[in-house]
Design a protein around this nucleic acid. Sequence first.
DNA 1: TTGACATATTCAACAAGTTGAGTATAAGCT
DNA 2: AGCTTATACTCAACTTGTTGAATATGTCAA
Lengths: 179, 179
Amino acid sequence: MALAHTILTLLSYSPASGYDISKRFEEDISCYWKASQQQIYRELGKMAKQGWVTHQSIPQAGKPDKKIYELTPVGETELLRWFAEPSEPTPIREDLLVKVLAGPYLPRDLLHQELKHRRHLHERQLSDYHAMEQCFLGASEPTSAEQFRYLTLRRGIRYEESWIDWCDEVMAVLAQMEN
Amino acid sequence: MALAHTILTLLSYSPASGYDISKRFEEDISCYWKASQQQIYRELGKMAKQGWVTHQSIPQAGKPDKKIYELTPVGETELLRWFAEPSEPTPIREDLLVKVLAGPYLPRDLLHQELKHRRHLHERQLSDYHAMEQCFLGASEPTSAEQFRYLTLRRGIRYEESWIDWCDEVMAVLAQMEN
DNA sequence: TTGACATATTCAACAAGTTGAGTATAAGCT
DNA sequence: AGCTTATACTCAACTTGTTGAATATGTCAA
């Protein structure tokens, strides 16, 4: 259900079209809430039915009409209700951990390759996060919105760092097992 | 698709009933692959149809018959194929990060409560993991299976630690914002 | 007796996620 | 012209996740 709430959150910042929301997800929201374009439009349709958002069609020259969505008071109430509700950590479903569990019975070199591959992916993401961090650190008087956004980035940085450290740990143990 | 592969991985260790597999998930596999009992049985049915596993019904006194599942050679081939395939990090969908993003526009005290609640949950999980770690650290000559299992636990420990550290960081920034 | 819990398994309904396909309009490049 | 990309949005089909319900047999405690 929290895709709807993620969208409500974005609309609490400012009204936006479905397309803009989708672009926002692509750019950075997917770091903490992944959703496809189709999912977003589907959800917006449901949210409109529930009265959480309204939209206005705006004709555009040379492009299809755009629908600008905004929060309704009912939508604001729903966002607050959800915000006040204690959350649970997201359920984990992580292939790499299953692969490590399969480690005793499958080829060690494949696991080693997989760990290198994943370390590389996480390093790349961390590098992107550090680049994004530079923008935040350069701000002399950050707005509170900017501060909160920076904190979400901080979580991303910690997450990637901990994956890299763990990959190193596993590879060290693999190396030890070879001796 | 990796629920099937998680089950294949478990069966690579030894044949097991659906119920035993389900208990294994409940006990520790859910730390890195969450699945419900119904999902597991559904998946086992599919896997049997695909020829990845076979099962034998064993009558039991005082209890329903049990089905013991085991890997087929086709199942082993599938597990190896999947193992060799590069994986992607799991998509993230984390309520707490969305709540932080909503932070500028919603009551700060609610966010503070949520962070405390989540810090507490992660601390509790970390404590459980440390208790489990003791069993591994006590082993004088761990089998390779035990070593690999320990590494999955190490990931859990790092994950929980990084959440706790981040909650502390956010709460510190919240406290600063109040001044 | 009833309710809770355990061993064992299965079915159903719905929601959310994934992937493919498509519509419309336009610009730019090969 | 065809392909790619961009702005904008929608529909469909299937898979996976969630929750509820149920079956069968048994033990134990209130």
